[in-house]
């Protein structure tokens, strides 16, 4: 097999990418997960998690009606409760960006669009370029692209790097999130390598998964990606955002993720400018826990809007 040629820039990036101590990562996670957050801190954590959600619908059966309904939910999480934030963004397919933009109006909630032949990423660059351009032309504030996992796994790092850089060039000021689909990458070393690669190529955010493949945003994977963000910040002073997506459906998990961010990256990342949850069912669980904290009663899904 011909080894694809690699630029000196990328080669030094990959050479400095460390390997991950999996046992150490698991121990650190176990320690974080053993902590419990209660009372006022829990309320604040729940509100924070809500404000970081990218409310998502990425189904073949999506309709404009479904997207409008989700945009309403994004603005009115639970009107009976006071002091709730809105979610950070809604995340849809490019064909629904215009509809979402219209439905969200002046609410300040951003519209994120997946692109580059999501979820597989198996298309020509020309199609990926048009896909991205179409979303941006329709008003997308953020682009969630997928990397070419096949190319990455076969060692064609330059291809993956150039592709991200090219999409970033199209995005300009539009925030670019790069989805790795870590469930297909198998090892933490691979996750770390692709994180360094994507950050080097200009990603504003790195994101675990499409939500279509299990496992998705597991703790070891997220910890590894946070480590890459931290090292990049220490080296360059630039802050890159993090978005775990898929599998975070309970408040408990969400709060543990926030703890991990605080511990690894510090408080500067605890805002939706730098941290997001890609989720659909998480919002209602957070709302139910929030109401439980306020009323002392365990809640029922019956009293919360579906989406």
């Amino acid at each position: 097999m011909n080894h694809p040629s690699i630029s000196t820039e990328l080669s030094s990036l990959l050479l400095s990418s460390p390997s991950i101590d999996q046992i150490g990562a698991l121990e650190r996670i176990a320690r974080i997960q053993s902590r419990s957050i209660k009372g006022a801190a829990k309320l604040q954590g729940l509100r924070m998690a809500l404000s970081m959600i990218d409310l998502t619908t990425l189904e073949g059966k999506d309709t404009t009606g479904k997207v409008r309904q989700m945009c309403y939910k994004a603005q009115h999480l639970h009107d009976q409760a006071d002091g709730l934030p809105t979610v950070a963004a809604v995340c849809v397919y490019p064909s629904f960006v215009a509809e979402a933009k219209k439905a969200l109006g002046t609410s300040g909630i951003k519209v994120a669009s997946v692109s580059t032949a999501f979820p597989s990423g198996q298309a020509s660059f020309e199609i990926k370029r048009l896909d991205t351009q179409f979303a941006i032309d329709n008003g997308a504030d953020e682009i969630d692209m997928v990397i070419s996992r096949g190319r990455f796994l076969s060692g064609d790092y330059q291809f993956v790097y150039d592709e991200i850089a090219a999409i970033k060039a199209i995005c300009g000021p539009v925030r670019l999130k790069v989805i790795f689909e870590t469930g297909e990458l198998d090892t933490l070393d691979q996750v770390r390598r692709v994180s360094d690669l994507a950050i080097g190529a200009g990603a504003d955010f790195i994101k675990t998964s499409t939500g279509k493949i299990q496992p998705a945003a597991t703790f070891p994977v997220v910890l590894t990606m946070l480590g890459a963000i931290k090292d990049h910040f220490d080296k360059t002073g630039q802050m890159v955002g993090m978005k775990p997506a898929g599998g975070i459906s309970s408040s408990k998990l969400a709060l543990q993720h926030l703890l991990m961010v605080k511990e690894v990256l510090g408080e500067a990342w605890l805002t939706n400018e730098y941290y997001r949850f890609g989720a659909s069912s998480l919002a209602n669980d957070l709302l139910m826990q929030y109401q439980k904290q306020l009323t002392g009663r365990y809640q029922s899904a019956t009293y919360f809007s579906i989406d």
């Binding site: 009663r297 365990y298 809640q299 029922s300 899904a301 019956t302």
Partner: peptide, 8 residues
């Protein structure tokens, strides 16, 4: 009390 107040 917890069981009796549970909304579900």
């Amino acid at each position: 009390p917890t069981l009796a107040s549970h909304m579900d």
